[in-house]
Design a protein around this nucleic acid. Structure first.
Lengths: 253, 253
DNA sequence: AAAAAAACTTATATAAAATTATAATTAACA
DNA sequence: TGTTAATTATAATTTTATATAAGTTTTTTT
């Protein structure tokens, strides 16, 4: 029984954290490294994970979605903390809008629904996560699929959005600059994000500190349009003060 | 009656605890290990448990795909064969509509794009598969997410659909009955399927032979609306002839 | 670019578990 | 009651699981 249980634990961990290290598995499961590697090899053959030097990852690091999985790995723990904090702010009977991006995906993974909840999203991977919770009603926006971000954008998504009004919008961005505002890499995405802002009461931006000072290709909005930023503790005091002067609530995890 | 009782006890325990050890079964039921293993082998063949080294588990511990549902595992090889055959019929510059279901998911997994290809689908898991192919333009229909089928249905999906015209529709069904026609378990889904039929030139139904003679809750259409059925070789000669008399091309894999 | 460190692979040994063949026991039934 | 078929146990064999150790490859450091 030991083997199967160990395999289960490995899979659990990789599903939870996105990746595992051989070393830490050895310690946690109290077996030799050879055994762990054999386990990983076996599970890879079953298609349950991908081996990489030093351990294994949940998603194929060399598939065409490479950008996102690498993106996802980057600042992973910060994103999880931010996602967790954001998840806490969701209350019963909220109708929540979740945009696409790696940080909001972390939010989707952290959501533990309390009572009824309706969530609208343009991100397929977010919807996939939410599919696990029977208590959450999910509305998936439609339209052209953007491969890199696993999300849709375009007029079809915007049209559907027009029929809804949401209590909260969780927005992820690619860049956040004190002068230029919030940006993303894609114009269609930026446009959709603006529509999302229009139909939402409270706008909460989830962004890890590495994005500060960066500018993506396409501007979404300025700071006057948003209500709160949740970020990690590597943000500078100066930036925090500036944001607060813009009237934005800053939550640090 | 001893044997049957022992089997019952084993099943009880595995349902209660999720797994059993051969060793402890030997002690608790006071029989030799050979007997327990024979029991487990028998019960595995009946599909009541999965054997693993050291005992048995209730659910397959290595469901190869994280999102591979129990439904999908059923008649897996037939579905893959059907999906493969369907994939071959897709040619360059096709605009393809793919409905939801486990059999069409097998199609999505088999697609090897030749030239440009546009695919519209209401199934998130199909879109997820197609996301791996950079050459395929994917349009994901939007709307209410149906958790069990990983797909959307409803007016938003239907509205988007109205803007398109497709060369082929690949349709999966839950039941196919010579008198009653094609059926699915959900009324919204059936409605969407009818809209899909309207905007498509050639309707190809993918269905494994186990679905013949079954009726789902909601009728999609009769045989006059479809052009081809791809199924496996367990279909009866009688059924095949009947279908051909209805004017449906029958392809057997 | 070389050296060092970390991670990986392979081979071998050992113990636990599974299988197989055969024998013993039990149940069924004419 | 005696014969047959089914069930279970015993013992020998094979397979599986894991650790150790030696040798490779990859990554990091210098």
């Amino acid at each position: 029984m030991k083997t199967v249980e160990r395999h289960k634990k490995i899979i659990d961990k990789i599903n939870q954290e996105g990746q595992v290290k051989s070393q830490s598995l050895c310690e946690e499961l109290d077996v030799s490294s050879v055994t762990i590697r054999k386990d990983l090899k076996f599970l890879e053959e079953k298609g349950m994970l991908y081996r990489v030097h030093g351990g294994a990852t949940q998603t194929n690091p060399y598939a065409s979605d490479r950008h996102l999985s690498e993106k996802e790995k980057y600042h992973f723990s910060e994103k999880m903390l931010i996602g967790n904090m954001a998840a806490k702010s969701i209350t019963a009977n909220d109708s929540v809008l979740i945009a696409s991006g790696t940080t909001v995906l972390a939010l989707a993974k952290s959501i533990q629904p309390v009572g009824n909840l309706t969530i609208i999203t343009n991100a397929m991977n977010v919807a996939m996560e939410l599919n696990n919770h029977i208590e959450i009603d999910v509305i998936l926006l439609g339209g052209y699929l953007r491969k890199r971000s696993f999300s849709v954008a375009g007029m079809y998504a915007e049209n559907i959005l027009k029929d809804f009004s949401c209590t909260k919008l969780f927005l992820g961005v690619d860049g956040i600059d004190l002068e230029f505002g919030l940006t993303t890499t894609n114009a269609m995405e930026a446009n959709l994000n603006r529509e999302m802002i229009k139909v939402s009461q409270k706008i909460i931006v989830l962004v890890d500190s590495s994005k500060f000072g960066k500018r993506g290709f396409s501007r979404i909005c300025g700071f006057e349009s948003i209500d709160e930023i949740i970020t990690d503790n590597k943000i500078s005091d100066f930036t925090k003060k500036q944001l607060e002067e813009f009237g934005v609530e800053v939550t640090i995890v």
